[in-house]
């Protein structure tokens, strides 16, 4: 019984942690892309990398102030959306899927190569202390929570983690508010009509390309924000932290929670991380698997979950069954 409680407690701890925040933001971005606009972006991790690199490089290497660095992160994500969207948004949906995943990998390979090591730190990335100030310095200095360990019942935090968690969830709440107010507006209506049939939207005088681009930028900036939260929490930036799997996990979270719903991606991320933690800890703590094998096993289970969800409950936890029936 103690084992069970311990598993549960540490899993809840994981579920509300920074990783879940990062995924909630990234998946919300995907929700704008895929859930509402029907854009198959499989390179969300590329936007995350752009946001993270924009912040880390501008602050640590070019020594701009922290808040300018945040702006650089956002602009980097916008830039990627423009460069990627201009050629591919006119093409079929699956072309976008392939080219976004390719672009994300190009970004990762390039920024981890020694060719750009001067800026990106190559394979070692940018630890927080590079360039004197370090991109996390201001962030940590802003932390009003006195150093120490805090516990609320089962939940345990260090002051740095608590700071990330508080700011992160506020950010997630703001993002939900933003998406809600956009999607109930006529803008949201146009975007959803594009998801259903872009020729119909075009025939009604809507500039489909412009709307797709706006949606790509919005979702990309949310991805970039997720990337910034990630590196602020980790305290360092390195390109190999941004692998294609991240996008796939974010999709799993989105679909689990329910695409095209405001809270779907958030609930999905919480559930995703909770399930990951529970499965891994159950498998290892109960001795079913050696500690090393937990990672691959749980990810295989994630994949299985994604398949099962898509087959049997494609609308996710919050999705509308009535709408989903029509998707076929």
């Amino acid at each position: 019984m103690d084992v069970f409680l311990a598993i549960l407690a540490s899993s809840v701890n994981t579920a509300i942690g920074p990783s879940a925040i990062v995924y909630a933001l990234a998946a919300s971005g995907l929700n704008v892309h895929y859930g509402y606009t029907g854009l198959l972006n499989f390179g969300q991790v590329g936007f995350m990398l752009m946001g993270a690199a924009g912040l880390a490089i501008s602050v640590s290497i070019f020594e701009v102030p922290f808040f300018v660095g945040l702006l650089c992160g956002v602009l980097a994500a916008v830039l990627l959306a423009l460069v990627l969207g201009a050629p591919t948004l006119r093409l079929r949906a699956d072309y976008l899927a392939i080219s976004t995943i390719a672009a994300a990998e190009i970004l990762r390979f390039t920024s981890r190569s020694n060719t750009l090591a001067e800026f990106t730190g190559g394979p070692f990335g940018i630890p927080s202390q590079v360039g004197g100030a370090g991109f996390t310095q201001t962030w940590n200095a802003m932390n009003p929570i006195p150093p120490g360990r805090y516990s609320f019942g089962w939940l345990q935090f260090t002051h740095t983690r608590l700071w990330v968690v508080i700011v992160g969830w506020i950010l997630v709440a703001l993002v939900c508010l933003l998406i809600w107010s956009l999607m109930r507006s006529p803008w949201g209506r146009v975007v959803r009509s594009i998801r259903e049939d872009e020729d119909a939207a075009r025939a009604l005088g809507k500039n489909v390309f412009a709307y797709k681009m706006q949606a790509l930028i919005l979702g990309g900036v949310l991805g970039g924000t997720a990337g910034m939260v990630l590196v602020l929490f980790q305290g360092s930036f390195f390109a190999d932290g941004f692998r294609p799997e991240l996008t796939f996990y974010a999709y799993t979270a989105l679909i689990m929670g329910g695409a095209a719903t405001i809270f779907g991606p958030v609930l999905g991320s919480l559930t995703f991380w909770f399930l990951l933690a529970v499965t891994e800890r159950t498998l290892t703590l109960t001795g079913i698997l050696p500690s090393g094998a937990g990672g691959a096993t749980r990810l295989a289970l994630v994949g299985l979950l994604l398949v099962i969800l898509m087959v049997f409950r494609p609308q996710g936890i919050l999705g509308n069954k009535r709408e989903m029936v029509l998707d076929g």
Partner: peptide, 24 residues
């Protein structure tokens, strides 16, 4: 091309041009 996951009313509203709320 009925927009399947939009309500009939939303389908209709979409047709109107020059909507101020359609700007981001």
């Amino acid at each position: 091309k009925a927009l399947t996951r939009l309500s009939v009313m939303e389908n209709m509203l979409l047709g109107a041009t020059q909507q101020r709320g359609e700007r981001f």
